[in-house]
């Protein structure tokens, strides 16, 4: 079974999702004895970093010889992936369902005429007839649907943080790869990139500290940021907070915001409206901090503190600092 994995990079560094994608492919189809995983890098990275994908199950890694793919233009990347699919003879394409993945997989499923299982939660269950059963959340995390997937060509995209990468050393070689993609095929022209500096991207974060109206105003957000800093977490907020412009909308998690599934989600001063819970309820561990013992968040939380955020947060931050030093 031949698989092509598309691995994202940014500024010459492999993204976290690159390792996840390789490991997801390896763990999903490990039972297939003839498994062969080729990785197409979405741009040039350090050769040693590329070779390390072998630790997670890659058999060969294709490094673009030209710089054309180093910035992300969706149409150029889609064409490059199609070229790599043809050259590798892969039957299955695996990638992360990140913003890049979300732009690529719909185009590729039409262009490559493949059945698309997009945004799955876990590795497919493979049946003896070759079909897969996949699971994905629906109704904004309020439900889970299982689907049957069959077809000669298939695309599988998985949610970030869906599966922990596992080391499984396989012999791996990095090859230079020449793309036939020409920059004239670009359909958009980038004018400006604004990168969030020094912050952990919310969708990639393993830990997230989220604030709600209980914080009483944007001037108190240092309490959230201090806590986030001591536990290497990203910061997030509820819908009212972004609606009132206390925080920018790209921090809004919930049904109409970003859906996340970190290992740890701490909700501070968020009551837990159904729309908010929808976006965060697949988090592995949930901590709720709220003055109201009846707040709906305590019904889904694993750990709770009934108390004033202004009192709880500094103490919690100190306690984590002690653990980290300890």
């Amino acid at each position: 079974m031949k698989i092509l994995v598309y691995a994202e990079q940014q500024d010459g560094h492999l993204k976290k999702s690159a390792v996840e994608a390789v490991s997801f492919a390896r763990q999903s189809f490990e039972s297939r004895g003839d498994l062969n995983i080729t990785v197409l890098l979405g741009g040039q990275v350090d050769t040693q970093a590329a070779a390390e994908l072998g630790l997670y199950g890659a058999n060969s890694v294709w490094m673009p010889a030209e710089s054309i793919l180093n910035s992300f233009e969706v149409h150029l990347h889609a064409l490059a992936i199609q070229q790599a699919l043809a050259e590798s003879g892969a039957e299955v394409l695996v990638m992360a369902h990140t913003y890049c993945g979300k732009s690529l997989v719909p185009r590729l499923s039409v262009a490559w005429d493949a059945v698309l299982a997009a945004g799955v939660n876990s590795p497919p269950e493979c049946a003896s007839d070759g079909s897969w059963k996949v699971y994905r959340t629906v109704y904004s995390n309020k439900g889970i649907a299982s689907y049957s997937v069959s077809g000669v060509r298939r695309i599988l995209s998985f949610l970030p943080n869906a599966l922990k990468p596992v080391e499984c050393s396989s012999p791996c070689t990095v090859f230079p790869w020449n793309t036939t993609v020409n920059s004239a095929a670009a359909k958009t022209r980038s004018l400006e990139l604004q990168k969030v500096q020094g912050k952990i991207p919310l969708t990639e974060a393993e830990r997230v500290i989220s604030g709600g109206r209980g914080l009483k105003g944007p001037e108190h957000w240092h309490l959230i940021e201090d806590l986030a800093e001591v536990c290497d977490a990203a910061t997030a907020c509820s819908k009212p907070v972004s609606d009132m412009h206390w925080r920018s909308h790209d921090e809004h998690v919930g049904q109409t915001g970003i859906t996340i599934k970190p290992d740890l989600y701490m909700a501070v001063g968020i009551s837990g409206a159904i729309q908010h819970l929808a976006g965060v309820s697949s988090s592995k561990t949930i901590v709720a901090i709220n003055t109201d013992r009846e707040a709906p968040f305590f019904k889904v939380a694993d750990y709770g503190v009934v108390g004033d955020a202004f009192e709880v947060l500094p103490q919690l931050t100190q306690a984590i600092r002690r653990l980290r030093k300890g």
């Binding site: 990140t98 022209r189 980038s190 990639e204």
Partner: peptide, 9 residues
Amino acid sequence: MDGGREKLE
């Protein structure tokens, strides 16, 4: 986009 925003034509 992942970790930021892009302005494009």
